[in-house]
């Protein structure tokens, strides 16, 4: 089968999933429960995507854990996103170097 057809089907399904709720929901949601539900969704989604996956993101649980800890501490003190993200990577990289020297 042509690869173009595969890509078109993939892209079509993915687009429809995103587009339907985004385009169809024109009304402001009134229900207090639904509003609260949607308010908590982003945090819950991000938390579920991060944990436990972050600990397996670098190929070494130790360097990933150090990176995660660095990110959590800096985020706790409210540092900007890019600082937190780069520091997590830097901490994991340095930890990896130290491990390889030991």
């Amino acid at each position: 089968m042509s690869i173009v057809i595969y890509i078109a089907v993939m892209a079509g399904v993915t687009y429809i999933i995103r587009m339907v709720p985004f385009t169809m929901f024109r009304e402001k949601i009134k229900s207090r429960f639904l509003k609260s539900f949607l308010y908590y969704i982003p945090y819950a989604v991000l938390s579920a995507m991060t944990i436990p996956a972050i600990f397996f993101a670098t190929g070494s649980v130790i360097s990933a854990a150090v990176g995660a800890a660095a990110a959590m501490i800096l985020a706790y003190f409210g540092l900007p996103l890019i600082v937190v993200a780069l520091s997590a990577s830097a901490a994991a990289y340095i930890t990896g170097l130290i491990i390889s020297l030991m």
């Binding site: 982003p42 945090y43 991000l46 938390s47 995507m49 991060t50 996956a53 972050i54 993101a57 670098t58 990933a64 990176g67 995660a68 660095a70 990110a71 959590m72 800096l74 985020a75 706790y76 540092l79 900007p80 996103l81 890019i82 937190v84 993200a85 780069l86 520091s87 997590a88 990577s89 994991a92």
Partner: peptide
């Protein structure tokens, strides 16, 4: 780790 670090910076 970058993207996960970013997520933590958003939720914490």
């Amino acid at each position: 780790l970058m993207l996960y670090g970013m997520f933590l910076a958003i939720i914490i």
